[in-house]
Amino acid sequence: MMLAAENLSVSVRNTTILRDVSLHLQPGECLGLIGPNGSGKSTLMQCLAGLRKPGKGRVLLNGHAMDRTSSKIRSRQLALVEQQAETAERITVREAVELGRIPFLSPLRPWRAEDDAKVHQALDAVDMAGLSDRLWHTLSGGERQRVHIARALAQSPEILLLDEPTNHLDIRHQLSILALVRALPVTKVIALHDLNQALACDRLVLLHDGAIVASGEPRKVLTTQHLREVFGVEARYLTPDPDEPPLIRFSCATSLSY
């Protein structure tokens, strides 16, 4: 069960959004995707999810070219939590999560008890079971985000792609969702903005202007030099407690220039 990108390039009109990006997912790992706004994280996610065809290069799912994999097969192995997705329909939380079972249904294969079980499990996992009859438009931003994650979990994917899943979440839910995601026995790719949270990933890929600047062990990627060059901030590692992972403390070094 593997996902790999080989020499991806994407351009829109005359601007290049991704240049020559390659990455290979290791089974079961949690890969963090970091980079400033507009660095191409969401675009790379869409390519990996098979929603966007790269101009050059290819994405391989289990060794098969993504654009030749049927969308049904793809959707049973790979789930995506988009950065934002809204609806005007009057659907309930449970109905939104039930959409995640669509890959396993067909015109002739009805809804079964096992589908209900998966939906309940997913709702429980994101702590939304109590709100399962609430209508979508009455939910807060964080609650909507958790429903999106539950929908992806209901897909019971082997690879989970999450584009800024902790957006809108309060700190408790940020931590619990990340802990939940990390504990899932699947391969995951997470785009993140909180670099302290990114430190907890197994591996990081740092994007800048559509290209991979560094990848590997978090501490080797999030060096003070990279942080200065890519994000334009000064960073210091703090180790208040030697038994716990370090913290990065940031200060604005270079003023934003447009």
Partner: peptide, 25 residues
Amino acid sequence: CFWHRRSLDAFTFGADSAASLGIAV
């Protein structure tokens, strides 16, 4: 329409979401 009832459901959160739910959009 009835044959494609699940595809119609899948568009709830947009075409990208439908595609990632396995619909050949």
